[in-house]
Amino acid sequence: MRLHYLQHVPFENPGSILTWAQENGHLITNTQLYKDETLPMQHDFDWLVIMGGPMNIYEEESYPWLVDEKVLIKEAIASGKVVIGLCLGGQLIADVIGGKVTTNPYKEIGWFPIRLSEEARLSPLFSFFPAEPIVFQWHGDTFSVLPAEATCIGESDACKHQAFIYKKRVFGFQYHMENTPMIIKGLVENCREEMVHDVYVQTAEELLAHPGYIEQNNQWMKLFLTQLEEMDRKGEL
């Protein structure tokens, strides 16, 4: 399987997704958009992973590569690829499928529980999750409106839409299960100005104080990807 990922800033790489892909012998390619690298053609990859980043989906003037990135994502979905978006990546997916991305009522930064829907927990893709997993958040915007074809599968007190599935093969996550300690340190170092005092914003010390949460999130991500690959291979998506 050929996995391609889109990276928006140097400090947000796919983390445990890369580890999983390497352990399973998959071909990994990438586009570093902040370096203005050339995007791939649709025939170059099977799965597309879209990373997070501090920019917003509507900031095309400051980040002109967003225009072509959205076209690539839309074409990948139309081509029937498996597409996974994380935080900004999930928002980009929501935008190209006809949803809306707006400022969330609360900024969410830190470790917080989400609630998975009963439908999600009955799916083999999510059956191993607890009802309220604690996941890592770092966002101010969110996919506040989803099209009818998308199914919201997670919510929290701070954010109504935490995850969605679109046409069985496209997944948007507002939260991060791929983050390693190095990625979280990079976020703290590069985006510290976003950590304003608020009800759902934890301190840098709190963010870095839970290696057990990081390990558990990485394990959930690997289990999700393994099940997704198996169902994709069997034609069950």
Rank of each mutant, 00 (worst) to 15 (best):
E189Q: 14
I114C: 06
P113T: 09
P54G: 09
P133Q: 04
E229W: 15
T142E: 10
E230M: 07
I183Y: 10
I97Q: 01
L3E: 00
G186T: 03
C159P: 11
P133W: 15
W65I: 02
I93Q: 05
I183L: 14
V170Q: 07
I84G: 03
I93Y: 04
T180D: 02
D44W: 05
W65G: 02
L39C: 04
G90E: 03
E189V: 03
G98Y: 11
P181T: 02
M182H: 12
N24F: 11
P211H: 09
G98N: 07
V67P: 00
H26L: 12
A150S: 08
W47N: 00
A94V: 06
H139E: 01
L18K: 09
G15T: 07
H8R: 08
P14H: 05
K81L: 03
D198G: 08
M41H: 15
D232V: 02
D157G: 10
K35S: 06
T103I: 13
G89V: 06
M195S: 02
G99I: 08
N190K: 13
A131C: 02
G80K: 09
I214Q: 05
D157N: 13
T31I: 08
W220F: 15
A76T: 09
T226S: 14
V196G: 00
A204R: 05
K168F: 04
E61H: 12
F129H: 10
E189D: 13
G80L: 11
P54S: 07
